[in-house]
């Protein structure tokens, strides 16, 4: 009976440690990198071109600068046959494009909100002027 009382907390501790260990192992695993093939770069280049020709380029110039630079590096890595580097850069560029797009979206929304607030302000002023004419 006494032995039972001693072994139960120990077993619970072991289970907790096991979970923590597994989590650590998962965390320690290298980040998932995209798989690439011969066309990946060209597809990426097309994506970048599309972004450059969109409003995103104006809304997120810094990101576009990084993207352009990284694209050059990816091209170089591809030429050098450095698949891992090319994969990492491809992943980063794709992520950068997402960031740039989001930034452009936020900029647009900010602008839209500013305009909407201006509109609201003007509407309120106009309403006040109207209400002042009412008895």
């Amino acid at each position: 009976m006494k032995q039972n009382m001693m072994t139960k907390p120990l077993q619970s501790l072991k289970k907790a440690l096991l979970l923590a260990f597994l989590s650590t192992l998962i965390a320690c695993s290298p980040p998932t990198v995209v798989e690439i093939n011969d066309n990946t770069y060209y597809q990426l280049e097309e994506q970048v071109e599309a972004v450059k020709n969109s409003q995103v380029a104006d809304a997120a110039p810094l990101e576009m600068k990084f993207i352009t630079e990284k694209l050059q590096r990816a091209k170089k890595a591809k030429a050098m046959g450095e698949k891992r580097e090319e994969a990492r850069l491809t992943q980063q560029i794709r992520s950068d494009i997402e960031v740039a797009r989001l930034r452009a979206k936020v900029n647009r929304m900010n602008q839209a909100l500013l305009e909407k607030r201006d509109e609201l302000s003007a509407a309120r002023v106009y309403l006040q002027q109207l209400e002042a004419q009412l008895p």
């Binding site: 980063q92 992520s95 950068d96 997402e98 989001l102 979206k105």
Partner: peptide, 15 residues
């Protein structure tokens, strides 16, 4: 690379 990606994730989350 992971740091960069994590930072980008944070950026994306913020945006």
């Amino acid at each position: 690379h992971a740091v960069y990606m994590a930072r980008n994730h944070l950026k994306k989350a913020k945006l």
